[in-house]
Amino acid sequence: NEQLKKATECKPIDYPKPDGVLTFDRLSSVFLANLAHEENQPDHLVLKNPQVMIDVNYKEYASPETRYCPAGVYEIVEENGSPRLQINATNCVHCKTCDTKDPTQNITWICPEGAS
């Protein structure tokens, strides 16, 4: 996380589309991981301060969590004209990348209860 550059210092990478043979889209890969989550389990991805995700991660780093998460758990959605970080915890493959890679160390990964 200490090596992450701000968005203004980088140019966007134009990744090729998944070909379905050698490379696959994120959601198909999450499906193949065959993980299950209990609907009523406590959140295992906790933000220490949700506003930091917009004030710092979104504005200064262009929301890197939307790119470094291999399962597409983190997503920026527009709500009433303002960006908001949405966490799709059921997609989580428990790699813990978000806990270590977040530039503000604002995401805490907690081992989920039950399920797989």
Rank of each mutant, 00 (worst) to 15 (best):
D19I: 05
Q105N: 10
N80R: 09
I87L: 04
N80T: 10
D43Y: 00
P83S: 04
E79A: 11
E78D: 08
N1D: 13
A62T: 13
R67I: 05
T23E: 13
T104C: 11
A89C: 05
Y68R: 12
T90P: 00
S28T: 15
K11A: 08
P83A: 02
N1I: 14
T23W: 05
T100G: 06
A115S: 14
C92V: 05
N57Q: 15
D102G: 04
E2N: 12
L4N: 06
N80L: 04
K101V: 11
P18A: 04
N49D: 15
W109M: 10
H37C: 08
K11C: 06
S82P: 00
T100C: 01
G20H: 08
P70Q: 09
L35H: 04
D25I: 02
I107C: 04
V30L: 11
D99Y: 05
T23N: 09
V93G: 06
R84Y: 04
A89E: 15
D19A: 03
F24R: 06
I76H: 09
Q41F: 09
E60R: 03
K11Y: 02
P70G: 14
E60V: 07
E113A: 10
E9F: 13
S82G: 00
C95A: 10
C95P: 12
T100P: 00
S28R: 14
D14I: 12
A71H: 06
E38M: 08
T90L: 08
Q3T: 13
K17M: 13
C98Q: 07
C111Q: 12
K48A: 08
C111E: 13
P18Y: 02
Y74S: 09
K59W: 01
N80C: 07
Y15I: 08
G114S: 12
E9W: 11
I87G: 07
E65A: 11
P18I: 10
P64K: 01
L47Q: 05
P64Y: 01
E78I: 14
D102S: 12
D19E: 03
Q105W: 01
P16M: 01
T8G: 00
T23R: 12
I110P: 03
N57Y: 10
L47Y: 00
Y74E: 13
T100S: 13
G81L: 12
P16D: 02
G72H: 10
V73P: 09
A33N: 14
N91K: 15
I76S: 05
V21A: 07
S116H: 13
L27K: 14
P50V: 03
Y68K: 02
A71N: 03
G72D: 12
A71C: 10
G114T: 10
S82K: 11
G20I: 11
E38I: 08
Y15M: 10
G114W: 00
K101H: 14
F31C: 07
A62M: 03
T108W: 00
A62E: 12
R67P: 00
L35S: 01
H44T: 10
E38A: 10
A36R: 07
T100Y: 11
